[in-house]
Design a protein around this nucleic acid. Structure first.
Lengths: 181, 181
DNA sequence: ATAGCTGTACCGTCTGGACGGTATTGTCAA
DNA sequence: TTGACAATACCGTCCAGACGGTACAGCTAT
């Protein structure tokens, strides 16, 4: 199958993400990825015939996994009560604690070629529309989406600008704004 | 002096920023920068003795220029009426229209080594504090800072997720929230 | 027999950076 | 005034190493 879930393949993708974080997004080499994944270079190239394909797959699986988790959190929420918006906040809080951002692999893709981010572009647009539909108030949706997006990019770039308690009270205020509707 | 403004030096820095945008942040080579700046490679290395120093300088001058412009916009506003917050919005709107984000050079620095973003980290933290002090309401400051930060990162990564009119009405709503205080 | 690798050898290209040279301008002692 | 020297700002070349990718022979579990 095209998007086959495969043991070794997944290990390679994870190794690529971790290495992108450790060595800097632009210094990702196939040799290093293969070594970290515990696979030979030939083995790596068996799964991903070129570096571009590896980076493409990194972005795609990241988006897919994010969406899958988001929909799971959405299902945890009682339906009809702005489940999408709350799930979006839930997922941010959940992923915020990690040392290495799960999205670090996409920086490597960006470094190689910005157009590799096209799937992210499409997905984020779709996500914003879902939040808008969920909330009813398009401007509130924008505030919520953009604010979280800002926090996520701060994590992505490891800027660490906002302190934990600042983030906590921001999230609470955003939740209040949602309920208020 | 240490941070000397110099004709050729500035041309090199600008060339680096533009090339980072054109060729992808990770594909920035000294040869290409030199060629674009109309200088020989030797000449480039005279001004910046290593690639790291060039990227460092790119980040530093970006932060300096941003701060300079922000303070200029702040001075345009009547003092005492949340000048910092409004200037922050003004500057975003102003820079949003450009095709190439002025910050594109910092992606090249990030690609090489994430720690090159340390000056940005420090500056952004300081900026958030200034907005907090300016607004009085810390949570509102966070909403404003994070929302704009999200829009800026979307520009930086060329994600183009929000449409112009969405951005426009978001800005207006943020301005209303400021005045409301 | 085939899928899924391992391991090695290799090639062409690109790139950072070292290095030696050059032109111009300024300084300063004799 | 002039000659020696030095600092600045650059040019052009060269090289070692890294990297992406190819090729191919072999192993092994299913």
């Amino acid at each position: 199958m095209v998007t086959g879930r495969n043991e070794t393949r997944d290990r390679i993708l994870q190794a690529a993400s971790e290495l992108a974080w450790e060595t800097g997004p632009g210094n990702l080499s196939l040799d290093a990825v293969a070594a970290k994944a515990g696979v030979s270079k030939g083995g790596l190239l068996y799964h991903f015939p070129s570096k571009s394909r590896l980076l493409e797959a990194t972005v795609e699986t990241f988006v897919q996994e994010y969406d899958q988790t988001l929909k799971a959190r959405e299902a945890d929420r009682p339906p009809g009560s702005h489940a999408v918006a709350h799930a979006y906040l839930d997922l941010f809080v959940e992923q915020h604690v990690c040392k290495r951002p799960p999205s670090s692999g996409i920086l490597a893709a960006l470094a190689e070629d910005p157009s590799f981010l096209n799937p992210v572009r499409r997905y984020e647009r779709e996500l914003l529309d879902r939040i808008k539909a969920d909330l009813g108030d398009p401007e509130l949706a924008m505030i919520l989406y953009c604010a979280i997006s800002g926090l996520k990019s701060s994590d992505l770039l490891s800027l660490d600008v906002a302190k934990p308690d600042e983030i906590k009270s921001l999230i609470e205020r955003l939740r209040a704004l949602i309920s208020q509707r």
